[in-house]
Amino acid sequence: MQPGAHKGETTRAARHRDCATSIVRAHMEANPIVIDDTAGDVVVVVVEGEHDIYTAPTLRERLDASLDRGGGVVVDLTAATFVDSSVLGALLDARRRAHEAEQGFVVCIGDQVEPGVRRILDITGLVPVLPVVNGREEALAAARSDGKE
């Protein structure tokens, strides 16, 4: 068995997996999730590109790390082009954790929202739930006041 091969895996399956792994490595680089802590008391998690079940665990890690700092958290989806229900699940869990700890939690989008982001937020009715606001500055202000309610 080759190093790194999964138990019982054929050579063809291992090659397929290696190929898929290199595709997704490139995918992750093209679709980053970055923590921006330059806003002081509120941490911004900046989500760019396409995100689904593959990147949702990374998003969860970034959200947990941001909440661990104890202040408010803003998730900036301005540069996101696609998010699915795995991403919504991560956002809703982070929101619940933030509320339990009385930390602010707000999602923001830009003026130009990609259909792959706008549509799922609209048809799930989650805009007022998460909540989702327009623009990072508004989100920062809302996250600061949200945690103090």
Partner: peptide, 12 residues
Amino acid sequence: MPARPESVGVVR
């Protein structure tokens, strides 16, 4: 494809 998270983006 293998039913793994990395396959979903490839299908898309």
